[in-house]
């Protein structure tokens, strides 16, 4: 009896401790989302005059090619980043877990360092690196007499999405490295020893042992990567402002412009709700694809 009372008291205590955070979270996340859902049903330019138009904003959204192009850019950036960030992070983690590399702690810190820098700073630094006249990339190309290859990198609509993915990949490799390395350390070393006895090469060890054993951590990393890249904004705002034209436009930037430059608050709210739905579905799809819950019974 006493124990039970103690337990319920503990529950109350926990609730009380969590309550302030929960309230703040509700105030800054849940309520604005509900607010956006409400505003998305109105034609509204920011003033007192709000006209209820039902689902018209959503019908417009479905036919808005600019929005879907921005979504497509988001997907391309996310795919590039999954391959770039997680792929390179996996490669580095495998290297750092092997015996060939020295000063491991140093490498870990240095690799994580970019993830701590503000996105705006990263954006500025890389826009200087890509600058046509005095940028590092072109200066290097000119130094090795490849003037023809020196290009205004941020001006070509055909390649811009991949160019702006480079800073993103560079910045977050360390972040995914931490996740993957912590997963790798949890693998029992004796498995590798047995494999070595059987004559497995390093590549075989990485692909046949490490990869399957850290699958769940990878799923988390992919999920974080998709979620992060769906709301990408600051790098692109600083580097290209969505340009040239709309060729590097992403969804979050488009919402910002629709709200504060075009003053279409209602339509922008509908866009935000659209982003929420699209991101959630992509995250769920990726999770299902990686963990493949339907294969579990057969495999085990």
């Amino acid at each position: 009896m006493g124990k039970k009372k103690g337990k319920s008291r503990l529950g109350l205590y926990i609730l009380l401790c969590v309550l302030p955070v929960l309230l703040i979270y509700t105030y800054v996340v849940i309520i604005p989302i509900l607010g956006a859902m409400r505003f998305s049903l109105f034609q509204w330019s920011g003033g007192a005059d709000m006209k209820f138009i039902g689902l018209k904003n959503y019908r417009l959204l479905f036919r808005d090619t600019e929005f879907w192009k921005a979504f497509q850019n988001n997907v391309w950036i996310a795919l590039t980043c999954i391959l770039g960030q997680i792929g390179i992070a996996f490669f580095f983690s495998a290297l750092l877990s092997s015996r060939v590399i020295r000063f491991k702690a140093f490498h870990r810190v240095v690799a994580y360092f970019p993830a701590t820098i503000s996105a705006v700073v990263v954006g500025f630094v890389w826009s200087f690196i890509f600058n046509y006249d005095f940028g590092l990339v072109n200066a290097f190309l000119r130094a090795i007499h490849l003037e023809k290859w020196a290009k205004p990198w941020l001006d070509n609509p055909a390649t811009i999405v991949f160019i702006i993915s480079i800073p993103l990949i560079w910045q977050y490799i360390g972040y995914y490295m931490v996740i993957i390395m912590s997963a790798m350390t949890s693998i029992d070393p004796s498995i590798y020893e047995m494999a070595e006895l059987d004559g497995a090469s390093s590549l075989q060890k990485a692909l046949r042992i490490t990869l399957p054993l850290i699958k769940n951590s990878l799923a988390v990393a992919v999920m974080l990567c998709i979620a992060g890249n769906m709301k990408i904004f600051d790098h692109i705002y600083v580097m290209t402002n969505g340009g040239p034209g709309t060729s590097s436009m992403v969804m979050a930037l488009q919402v910002y412009k629709t709200t504060f430059i075009k003053s279409q608050y209602g339509y922008a709210s509908a866009m935000s709700v659209g982003i929420l739905i699209l991101s959630l579905s992509l995250v769920i799809i990726s999770r299902v694809c990686i963990t493949q819950p339907w294969r579990k019974e057969k495999d085990v």
């Binding site: 040239p244 034209g245 430059i261 075009k262 003053s263």
Partner: peptide
């Protein structure tokens, strides 16, 4: 109005980049 100006501004970038 702001929305027309934004379309012109963004569009001129595309025009200069040879996209439109």
């Amino acid at each position: 109005p702001g929305s027309v100006i934004e379309t012109i501004n963004v569009g001129l970038q595309s025009l200069l980049a040879g996209e439109k």
